[in-house]
Design a protein around this nucleic acid. Sequence first.
DNA 1: CGTCCACAACTAACCGTTGAGTTACTACGA
DNA 2: TCGTAGTAACTCAACGGTTAGTTGTGGACG
Lengths: 186, 186
Amino acid sequence: MARDSAATRARILAAAIDEFGAYGLAGARIDRIAEAAQANKRSIYVYFGNKEALFAAAMTHIVDDISTSVPIDTDDLPDYVGRIFDYYLANPSVVRMAMWLPLERPPQGPDETDAYAKKVAALSASGSPANDLDASDVVMFINALAQAWFMSPDSLRAADGLDPNSDERIARHRAALVETVRRMCG
Amino acid sequence: MARDSAATRARILAAAIDEFGAYGLAGARIDRIAEAAQANKRSIYVYFGNKEALFAAAMTHIVDDISTSVPIDTDDLPDYVGRIFDYYLANPSVVRMAMWLPLERPPQGPDETDAYAKKVAALSASGSPANDLDASDVVMFINALAQAWFMSPDSLRAADGLDPNSDERIARHRAALVETVRRMCG
DNA sequence: CGTCCACAACTAACCGTTGAGTTACTACGA
DNA sequence: TCGTAGTAACTCAACGGTTAGTTGTGGACG
């Protein structure tokens, strides 16, 4: 096995995102992360300090990734939600971590204030995003709508009879999502 | 201390809702629930079996409570979200449990299929709730929008300068919520 | 009407396991 | 041969769950 500290660190981080996404902060197991990363438990402590710090590192990593991968376009919010949805679909662990963040917030956890503040500022500055609604409310709604599919139980996703894992069903939902934001923005 | 098994059971259930709401299934502590309920740990096992069963009992309790407290009105969806929001505001532990459910689903957990299926069916039957959107998507969006405020970090809630705990700010958000659903329904 | 008894509610101390974090050590590579 | 990456074995506290025992209550019976 090659000795590459950067690669090991990256493997640990990737495994941590999956583990925290699957089980949350309290439910995640350091041993499982080590095993999945094919790294030793000890190296996690060497590279990241402790469980909470690892969680924080994973969180900042995904926040960075999402804000570069899915830049906001204040002139086309419907398209923006669509792209967030696509990103979530491709990165299930990321949505789940995002859902966990407000629930299990470590005391010294990462503060995504800046990422949100920038979006709200950009939206406010861009004139009238959604006519008379507050920019911060619009950001909240867009986030919530993009996550709706993932926070719904399977039973609800299947409620209309289609297989919730089929491409058609997902495409329909995506279209509904984009259309909803279009209507919201007037 | 009076010996009243029904009262003790109810105290445990109430404490469990708070504890699970605050920490989730994995993070919740049986000892804390017992202490908060002013009951002995043992009685929890007598009345509910184990931790997961207690979680399930708490979940079915709130599902029941919410579906009776906030009946759906398929003819006035904007009003319906508003009422859900009010309920959530008055019962913070309930929102948090609802947010936790899709993340920490115990293997033998409660299945809220029926509650959702009924809503989707009612909505489908009532003609055109939101013109061309699937009823199940509409239900997802309504749920997500009603929860948006509670899953947003404080920094986002405060992004426009107002105190996020003030009545005015909350009223503005509620109005935005109702208006958004109104637009969604066309 | 008093007294005993059986059962239900309650309690405290304990047990076994799990899991975060550490220690002491080995192997690799420059 | 020195420093860094990696490993296995361990510690210790926390926590879910249990055992064994205590207290209060309500009813049967003399």
